[in-house]
Write a protein that binds this DNA or RNA. Structure first.
Lengths: 115, 115
DNA sequence: ATTATTTGGTTTGTGCTGAAAACTGGTTTT
DNA sequence: AAAACCAGTTTTCAGCACAAACCAAATAAT
């Protein structure tokens, strides 16, 4: 028997991490985002954003595409389908777990020791 | 102007960390919990639970009380009022931010470059 | 009574990880 | 041509989660 608390403790940190939740949620809300736009949206520093993007890319949740626009190189970040599923499911899971936690009652309550 | 994504990125890691969300949420749902009961609920190892409890105690979100019951020493963990507020507000904030993110649209969209 | 074993945790060691500073390569400005 | 700037990347470092090792007290075995 697994409690909602156990599930909470086991949440995927790749998605759950605040900065990455921000990035993934932003990407899910935008049709497209380039690096600087994402930086503005999330308020992360460039270095920080860059490393989080690398992690997300390693996890196949996003793709980083470099396009040349005019003479500038633009880094476009795209949410993959697994990535979209991951962030959506994460939000949904949080909601479920919160609800379950509220409903929850110990089957085997801790020994009474009010004496 | 701060976006919901910026707020997401700034979430308090002391509360947001999966193991600690589990602990705090469990404590909010129980009237009381001793160490082993919490361990069963969350599925954490003893060492891991112990260190997280220390962090939460340092943050004044819980209190760890050692009682002697019969001949046994029982470690009882109590959510402080700030602790209860913190976990409740955290859940609420997550909900809000999700909603805001869904509503959100860029005021200043990224430069169109469909060419 | 003395020695194992179990119970109920804490401390220590280690590898990871998030954050910002420092760096890099191209571009524009002067 | 040099200086300044832009758009990111790499490096450095402190902090952290995790489990293994450890420890004290109670209980069980001999």
């Amino acid at each position: 028997m697994t409690t909602p608390f156990e599930s909470l403790a086991g949440l995927d940190r790749l998605v759950h991490e605040p900065a990455r939740m921000a990035i993934l949620t932003a990407l899910a809300a935008c049709k497209s985002a380039d690096f600087l736009f994402l930086q503005n949206l999330t308020g992360l520093t460039k270095g920080n954003l860059s490393t989080h993007l690398t992690r997300l890319e390693e996890g196949k949740l996003i793709e980083v595409v470099k396009e040349i626009v005019g003479k500038k190189m633009v880094t476009r970040i795209v949410l993959t389908e697994p990535g979209r599923a991951a962030i959506n499911q994460h939000w949904q899971r949080l909601q479920e777990l919160r609800d379950q936690a509220e409903q929850w009652q110990a089957e085997e309550p801790p020994p009474d020791e009010t004496a």
